[in-house]
């Protein structure tokens, strides 16, 4: 009887163990987990191209005009102040300003976004951030949707109106360095989750973000040259003919679709963690909107 009982118990334990094992640790593959520095100059240890694009006002015209070299500018020659062209991004800034005036008639929108002392210029540089009211780390576009909702206005994350508010607010901070603190607390936790996700392989081709943006920088995928992920968050949302206005989360859906991976929803936690990671890698780099990118 005693033996029977313990055999029984062992079987329960074993099946529970197998079940939890299968439940909790499905087989996953990761690219080698690289170290990064949560500051834009960290690129000197990754692609080394930072030396060419660190000063957005003084990029090298010769490099910008040379198709074999222009990728080394991290496509920053398509950002202001170097790029003086008038494009769809400027219309989006105007739209954003109009919407902001409507929503902020009584100052409620700005205070919901987290503006203190009328200091709108500082807003973009400090997002994503911990939001005590939401009880999680959130990007600016998520908060725009949330604060619009409080006034009954639909501003879905990734929509044109949401991104035009985001690009307008960014434009007020043009030239200010991105500045988020990922040294401790929930921001650090989000950064670490984002870093791990960046190296997590997924989709039909089993690619991680790092398969391209860390381990194949400067290589060609036919007509595309892959660039560093450092510095990218400073020019979002970005004008693209195909998307009109593309938020950073919609860029993630695009890279996912292009690599045969089922995308996630804008504002989802994994995308926000990726946003925290890539924004931290842009710390110290000046906001430069409205920028444009190919197609």
């Amino acid at each position: 009887m005693k033996t029977r009982f313990s055999l029984f118990a062992a079987l329960i334990a074993a099946s529970a163990a197998v079940a939890t094992f299968a439940q909790e640790i499905p087989y996953r593959e990761y690219e080698p987990l690289d170290p990064y520095e949560p500051v834009v100059s960290g690129d000197l240890k990754l692609s080394g191209t930072y030396q060419y694009w660190k000063d957005p006002a003084n990029l090298d015209y010769r490099m910008a005009g040379n198709p074999d070299e222009n990728w080394k500018l991290n496509w920053k020659f398509m950002d202001p102040p170097f790029n003086q062209a008038v494009h769809g991004g400027h219309f989006a800034v105007d739209r954003g300003e109009k919407l902001f005036r409507q929503l902020n008639a009584r100052g409620r929108f700005a205070s919901c976004l987290g503006v203190r002392n009328h200091n709108l210029q500082n807003l973009r540089a400090g997002y994503p951030r911990w939001r005590a009211d939401l009880k999680h780390v959130a990007g600016l576009e998520e908060v725009i949707e949330y604060c619009g909702g409080k006034q009954g206005r639909v501003l879905q994350n990734g929509s044109y109106d949401n991104s035009s508010l985001s690009i307008y607010l960014a434009s007020l901070g043009n030239g200010q360095p991105i500045n988020i603190d990922v040294a401790s607390g929930p921001m650090k936790a989000a950064y670490e989750r984002g870093r791990r996700l960046f190296h997590t392989k997924a989709g039909a081709f089993n690619f991680a973000c790092s398969s391209c943006h860390t381990h194949n920088i400067g290589k060609r995928l036919r007509g595309n040259v892959i660039t560093t992920i450092y510095g990218d968050a400073a020019h979002y949302p970005v004008y693209r003919t195909q998307y009109m206005l593309q938020s950073l989360h919609l860029r993630f859906t695009e890279c996912n679709l292009d690599t045969r991976t089922q995308p996630l929803l804008p504002g989802s936690q994994p995308y926000t963690d990726l946003e925290v990671f890539v924004t931290a890698l842009t710390n110290g780099y000046p906001i430069s909107v409205p920028a444009e990118r190919d197609w």
Partner: peptide, 8 residues
């Protein structure tokens, strides 16, 4: 692409 792993 629904049959393959996502980043969720």
């Amino acid at each position: 692409y629904t049959r393959w792993l996502t980043l969720s």
